[in-house]
Design a binder for these strands. Structure first.
Lengths: 207, 207
DNA sequence: CCTACCGATCGGTAGG
DNA sequence: CCTACCGATCGGTAGG
């Protein structure tokens, strides 16, 4: 029963999963490069070698494509952070934070990052689709909460507790605006530097 | 000779300056609320009580309107920061930085901020218009350079020197994404907290 | 997934 | 600044 979509609309079911996944990947790249409004269905169809009406066999609207791209990006980001949390030393907050920051930057600065589409095209997402995306976005942010809270209690992250997470993501997410792959610093270097910027020096004497 | 525009296209010349300025203000508000692509010339014309063809008497294209909005926003922001620098104690970097941060946030978080249009619609600005806007943007950032550098040398702003300015603006500009006028904290409180977040504690003992 | 197409919208213009 | 309009584009659909 093609055309039937799971609730999140993410799963690639069976035979046609490839074409569908290709559409999502291509749309994600174009949305990121040119923006949602400036990307036409024809652009996407051309890029995957379809005719302009064919994407609507896989997605009922351009909006559904956007929503799917964002959900895919968010799921990927959750997975990456979960992998970090599963292997990091839970007692060393700074080390954990460093790895999370680096992973986050690697995710949003990848050339075809679907997560970056969420960051730059949020306003293009129709009101009705936002709740579904916010749910996963909250899940992503919840992964960060314990580390940020712990670093806050230790005095390493400062400012109003309710704003710390916002400031952290601001410092990092803004990189989408200025990062260039051919720049002087690697993503790893930017990540290390961002942590230095955000983290107040530990109070341990003689360090 | 109506239709003639100064190089920057900002000045409101004589009699028609009012209508022109009204168009800029209205376009700025709509671009900020709905985005450049989602705002039509008809939206703007309706909002100022004109017919859909009439804005083109004042601006030769929608792009020129966007460019003007951004330049107006940038000029206003430069003026505000210059006013701070003119009255602040040049020897107290922290105090100066605090006032600049607050002014910056007040500028970008104002409901009808033209500066915020620059932050969110940069990609919609045509390639040919970017150079003119970048020039003023550089002027704005140059106003911050001495303070940021000085705080960096004092160890109050950390991380790679070339990235500090980017991290500062990230922390602040991201607020455009999450700030709500009806939120629990005022802009002044957010500004104070942002500075606490960014500034490493001064090393002065007993403080 | 293609062919063929539509209805709506949009930026912009001519002529006054 | 209005009237009247155009040419292009775009998301989406019917029917196979």
């Amino acid at each position: 029963m093609p055309g039937t979509t799971s609730k999140a609309g993410i799963e690639a079911a069976g035979e046609e999963g490839n074409r569908r996944a290709l559409l999502v990947r291509t749309a994600g790249r174009l949305f990121r490069e040119k923006g949602f409004d400036a990307t036409t269905i024809r652009d996407i169809a051309d890029a995957v070698g379809m005719r302009s009406g064919s994407p609507f066999y896989h997605f009922k609207s351009k909006q559904e494509l956007l929503c799917t791209v964002m959900l895919v990006g968010l799921e990927g980001a959750c997975g990456a952070i979960e992998a970090v949390l599963a292997t990091a030393d839970a007692n060393d907050d700074e080390a954990r934070f460093r790895r999370m920051v680096r992973t986050h930057l690697e995710t949003i600065l990848a050339p075809d990052s679907d997560f970056a589409v969420l960051l730059s095209e949020w306003r293009s997402l129709a009101e009705e689709s936002r709740a579904a995306v916010v749910t996963v976005k909250n899940r992503y942010e919840a992964l960060w909460a314990p580390v940020i809270e712990s670093l806050g209690k230790a005095g390493r992250l400062r400012g109003e507790p309710r704003l710390r997470r916002l400031f952290v993501f601001g410092t990092l997410n803004w990189a989408v605006q200025w990062y260039r792959p051919d720049g002087a610093l690697s993503v790893a270097q930017i990540a290390a530097s961002a942590v230095d910027f955000m983290l107040a020096p530990s109070a341990v004497a003689g360090r």
